[in-house]
Simulated assay, not measured.
Amino acid sequence: MPAHSLQDRATGALIGAFIGDALALGPHWYYDLDQLHADYGQWISDYTTPKAGRYHAGMKAGQASQSGVLLRLTLESLVACDGYDEADFCRRLDTTFFPLLDGTPMQGPGGYTSQSIREAWRKRVGQGLPWGQVAGNADTTEAAERTLAIAVCHALQPAELASAVTGNTLLTQNDGTVVAMTVAFGAVLGMLVEGQPLDTTLSDKLMARVKSGALPFHAVTSGNLQAPRPGETEAQSAGRFPSPDALLSQSSIARAAVDPDIRIEPAWKVSLVYGMPCAVYHQFPAAYYLAARFADDFESAVLHAVNGGGQNLARAMLTGALAGAQTGLSGIPQRFLDGLENAAELLDLATQLAKRIDQRQNRTAHAK
């Protein structure tokens, strides 16, 4: 297990996500890699300013995209409420975030407004629908990018983590596969914050939590996906999500990342292997691969995520969270903090949340 403290890992996951988001702000959504290289060179190693006519034009190097803005909003709510409070989160969206949008893609804080947020804004503000009726079927990682803070907050409470991430995701995205994969990502991140490694044993540990009822995935097989026990009924193993498959790919990807017969060189070409677009089934595998391959090297993990082109902002944000949870804040190069806008404020928020997780763990340990 990593030697880093729980507080260091939790803070590293949150700050790592903010750094990944800001690093990809300039070169965001280049599907033409030749054009990406023409605009930013063969290797992007730091924060960059978006070019005119691009998705975040007018912003400056080191600033947060809208994904970073929403992650901060979520983090502020978690700190204020000492945990996830849906009513508080929704109130913040209604009063501080939605008033800044007009429902169009190219307007809003942080530049581009994602599809699921535009749909939620139209239903909530335009049609006056209540929360619970404004989600859309976008297949992106938009919810995962903010709920990663919830996963960090409840890392030591896997059942609460799954419930809170599920509920928050359903506010803006209602596709069952998207929700399942988002909850799975949160569960993985929570385990890394606990101190578990992203390796070939992780999926077995996740499945053990399915069997215990902590994770709401349906599973009828026994250990190592063996046949069901004689006499076991569906009702004994049913979960909210139809199968545990979203929890099984991480160990296979981790195995591939260290298998000498399977090499993706350079590692940024993982985007070509798993796909450059925005959908969850492209983004999560690439993030898992980079985080497993560079488990002790935050810089390499996040920069290869950025340099892969396409939806590199989501890839870098998710990779940054996973990598930061493994290296801890202490393993993140200082230059990434120096160039990050509002770094002191973000670090203060992340530290406050991380300290509360640490205190919660200590209280639980003393109660036993």
Rank of each mutant, 00 (worst) to 15 (best):
N307T: 15
Q326W: 10
D297K: 05
T319S: 03
V302H: 14
A295Q: 14
R315W: 05
A305W: 15
Q326F: 08
A321D: 07
G309T: 00
G310C: 04
A305Q: 12
D296I: 00
A301V: 10
A314I: 02
E299S: 07
N307K: 14
G308C: 06
A301N: 13
G324P: 15
S300D: 13
G324A: 10
A316L: 02
A323T: 12
D297F: 03
D297I: 01
G310Y: 10
G310H: 06
E299R: 10
D296W: 03
G309R: 02
A321V: 03
L322G: 05
A301T: 14
A314Q: 08
G320F: 05
E299Y: 06
G320V: 00
R315K: 13
Q311F: 08
M317E: 07
D296A: 12
G324D: 12
Q311P: 01
Q326N: 13
A316Q: 03
G310M: 01
D297T: 02
A305L: 14
L322M: 13
L303A: 11
V306F: 12
A316W: 15
A323I: 08
V302E: 11
N312F: 15
F298H: 07
A314E: 08
L303G: 14
A301D: 14
N307Y: 09
N312M: 00
E299L: 01
A301S: 14
G324S: 07
A321T: 00
A314V: 00
G308F: 08
R315C: 02
M317H: 08
G310R: 03
L313E: 07
N307F: 11
A301Q: 14
Q311A: 04
A321N: 01
M317Y: 06
V302M: 06
E299N: 06
A325Y: 13
G308L: 08
F298E: 06
R315M: 05
N307S: 11
F298M: 01
V306A: 09
V302F: 14
G309Y: 07
G310Q: 01
S300A: 13
V306E: 13
Q326L: 14
A325H: 12
L303R: 14
A321P: 12
H304F: 12
E299A: 12
T319R: 03
G324V: 09
G320Y: 12
V302R: 04
G309F: 04
V306Y: 10
L313M: 12
A305P: 10
F298W: 13
A325K: 10
A316M: 02
Q326A: 05
R315E: 01
A295V: 02
L303M: 14
L313T: 05
G309M: 00
E299Q: 13
V302C: 04
D297A: 03
L318D: 04
G309C: 03
L313D: 09
V302K: 07
L313R: 09
F298G: 03
G310E: 06
G320E: 01
N312S: 04
D296E: 15
L313V: 02
A325R: 11
G309S: 02
H304Y: 13
S300R: 15
A316K: 03
M317R: 01
V306D: 09
A314M: 04
A301G: 13
